[in-house]
C-alpha cells in the first residue's frame, strides 16, 4: 500500500499521508510519487500544482512538517497550500473551547484585582470599585459592577458588553474606552455597550441588538 496518495478533488489535489505508515516510509513513497509525476510528459503542460497535505489522525511536529515541505520544495511543479490533520492537541482543543464557550463567573473582584478570561463571559459576581474584568469575547453581566469591564481584549471591536452599566467606573471594548459619568447610561439591565462604525463606544438597548451586531444576533439564533 502506498503511504503517500495523491487524490484529485473539486478544489485541486489532496496529498494524503497514511497515518499507519511511518514517516520514513511516507518520505520514501512521497519522493517516488513526485519523481514519477515529474517525468510524466503530459503533466508538464499543466500549471503549478497546489497540494493540500492531509495527515489523517496524525499531528506532525514542526520538524516533520519542514521535512515534507523541503522534499516537495525540490520539485518546482508542486507547492504546499496547507498541512491539515483530522485531530488537534488537547491544548489546542482547550483553547478552542475557551474561545467558543460562554464562561460562567461568579466571584467578587475587589479593588486592585484584575480577572482575565478567554471567550464570552456570563458574569454573576460583583466588581468593586477599582476591580477589573477583562475578556477576549463578549461580557454578559448580571452582577453589580462598580469597577471596570473590558470586552474584546486586546483589539476586537466587534464584541459587546450587556448588563446594567450605570454604576460602572469605565467600559472598555478593544482599545476604545469610556468613563461612565452619572446619568450617562440608562439604569437598565438591558443596556448594550458596543463600538459603532465610527469606532466610537456607544450604548443601545437589548431590543436593538439585531441592528447593533447582526452577526452575533444571527449566531445566537436570531433568524
Amino acid at each position: 500500500m502506498q503511504a503517500a496518495v495523491l487524490r484529485g478533488t473539486q478544489n485541486g489535489y489532496d496529498l494524503v499521508l497514511k497515518q499507519s505508515a511511518s514517516l520514513d516510509q511516507i518520505l520514501a513513497d512521497l519522493r517516488s510519487l513526485l519523481e514519477n509525476l515529474n517525468v510524466d510528459p503530459t503533466a508538464m503542460e499543466t500549471p503549478k500544482v497546489s497540494l493540500d497535505v492531509l495527515t489523517e489522525d496524525r499531528i506532525l511536529t514542526a520538524d516533520e512538517k519542514s521535512q515534507i515541505e523541503q522534499l516537495v520544495g525540490n520539485y518546482p511543479r508542486f507547492e504546499i497550500h496547507k498541512i491539515a490533520a483530522n485531530v488537534m492537541t488537547i491544548d489546542d482543543a482547550i483553547q478552542l473551547r475557551e474561545r467558543e464557550n460562554v464562561h460562567l463567573l461568579s466571584k467578587v473582584i475587589r479593588n486592585g484585582q484584575e480577572v482575565a478570561m478567554q471567550g464570552d463571559v456570563l458574569f454573576l459576581g460583583t466588581i468593586h470599585e477599582g476591580g477589573k474584568l477583562r475578556t477576549t469575547g463578549n461580557i454578559f453581566c448580571m452582577g453589580d459592577v462598580s469597577g471596570i469591564l473590558q470586552a474584546g481584549y486586546p483589539d476586537d471591536e466587534s464584541k459587546l458588553i450587556m448588563g446594567n452599566l450605570v454604576t460602572a467606573q469605565q467600559v472598555r471594548i478593544a482599545e476604545q474606552f469610556d468613563i461612565i459619568e452619572p446619568d450617562q447610561v440608562a439604569d437598565s439591565s438591558q443596556t448594550i455597550a458596543y463600538v459603532n462604525d465610527l469606532h466610537v463606544l456607544s450604548y443601545g438597548k437589548l431590543s436593538a441588538l439585531k441592528k447593533i451586531n447582526p452577526k452575533l444576533y444571527n449566531r445566537i439564533g436570531g433568524i
Binding site: R110, N111, G112, H128, E129, G130, G131
Partner: peptide, 10 residues
C-alpha cells in the same frame, strides 16, 4: 474602605 477592599482581596 477602598483600601480595606484591596487588603481583603490580597
Amino acid at each position: 474602605v477602598r483600601d480595606a477592599d484591596r487588603v481583603v482581596g490580597l
